[in-house]
Design a protein around this nucleic acid. Structure first.
Lengths: 213, 213
DNA sequence: TCCTTGAATCTACGATGTAGGTAATCGACG
DNA sequence: CGTCGATTACCTACATCGTAGATTCAAGGA
């Protein structure tokens, strides 16, 4: 008597994997990764916690699902472009997708995903590299070098940006200059601030110059 | 009556921050990050869970401490070396320190640490870059590009290597070749295997060629 | 001697992930 | 139209977690 039971009567607001993943992503966006719990997610969906297990294998599988939702937001590259243009476009697409959901991005950056949606961008990079005459082994190395840079860069971007607006707090700057380390002190103004955009282009440029000149 | 109480009698096997961090690192090495709990750690130390809070601010601070222990294992570069030699040495030192404790490495790679021990390697890289005539802003960009590559590369290395000996399982290879993606299929043998050593040198070489030729 | 201080313990609370069992509805088939 | 398996939602229960709060004892300064 306390709540409805059994199957949802016809076409009601029944649960579904997609609805669950959408709400989970919203929850992460609003409250952060460590605030995610099956119970809280169920509360938001107006549903018993255990009901989620009919559509998702458990908490870990749920988070994998959210990661794939993020990855699916990367736009496919335009077919006719050159090698450099393709790789640059995919790198920017990846970055934009992560920056669109900074609190959820660690799900993608931390786990290694083997699903089809994760393989699509890989195909999009590998194809042009092979077509450009790269031997497969070298193509894979290049792909992984760029991916490593992307992951490392975005890890810094996403957990500095959104919650603390003051990336360059005066306190942090003073802490750096007063550290007694000469080179750190000399570069302190640039260490305290992060021009993410410029740093991303700088590093990506180095890699693409070497791979797709 | 059930257990000893009060201060440890004289110089007995008293607790200490250092002893706690050492045991925590051992626990992570043996059972993995997600197996760490204050209660289990206390059990290993033969101590009440709440006793840990006299030496450590909480679970998060404990893990920060473990991360700093890892960072402190990076050897300082030899003073007389050239720019490229210094940067390459530090990159390898960082990598070796992480690979020595693969299950704990995510603590360093995931959190951004602002402590002195984290700043020492920064100083060691920044110094030679400034001495070589780099303007500070560019030096910081270069440092961060290399660091991003290190973080991204090591994230892949550490959670593939130790627990699963078969990085290149036949199943994974078949999964890749049968994916219907032509470039992925063509490069499948190299995607299924990871020659971490070679890939690390490849990516690091590209970056150092651009920064310290 | 007493008194402050700090370390170790005990108790307790709310929260979490999820195994196991029960009830209600739908789609298909006779 | 009646029946039945499958699917879905709910409920109960358990072990475990991080840690606030109060308590107890030994060591060292007065």
């Amino acid at each position: 008597m306390t709540g409805r039971r059994g199957r949802p009567p016809k076409e009601a607001g029944g649960l579904s994997r997609e609805r669950i993943l959408r709400e989970a992503l919203a929850l992460v966006d609003e409250e952060g990764l460590e605030a995610v719990s099956m119970r809280k997610l169920a509360r938001r969906l107006g549903v018993d916690p255990m009901s989620l297990y009919n559509h998702v294998d458990g908490k870990d599988a749920l988070l994998d699902g959210v990661a794939e939702v993020l990855l699916a937001a990367i736009p496919a590259p335009v077919p006719g472009g050159g090698l450099r243009e393709t790789m640059s476009g995919l790198a920017h697409g990846f970055r934009d997708a992560m920056l669109g959901h900074p609190r959820a991005a660690p799900l993608v950056l931390t786990r290694q995903l083997a699903s089809m949606t994760a393989l699509a961008p890989v195909e999009a990079v590998l194809g042009p590299l092979l077509a450009a005459g790269y031997p497969p082994e070298r193509a894979v190395h290049g792909l992984r070098a760029v991916l490593a840079f992307l992951i490392g860069t975005l890890m810094r971007e996403v957990d500095a940006a959104p919650t603390f607006s003051a990336t360059a707090s005066p306190g942090r700057l003073a802490e750096l200059t007063g550290s007694g380390l000469p080179a750190v002190s000399a570069a302190a103004p640039y260490l305290a601030v992060c021009d993410h955009e410029a740093e991303f282009e700088f590093g990506l440029g180095i890699l693409l110059d070497a791979l797709a000149p």
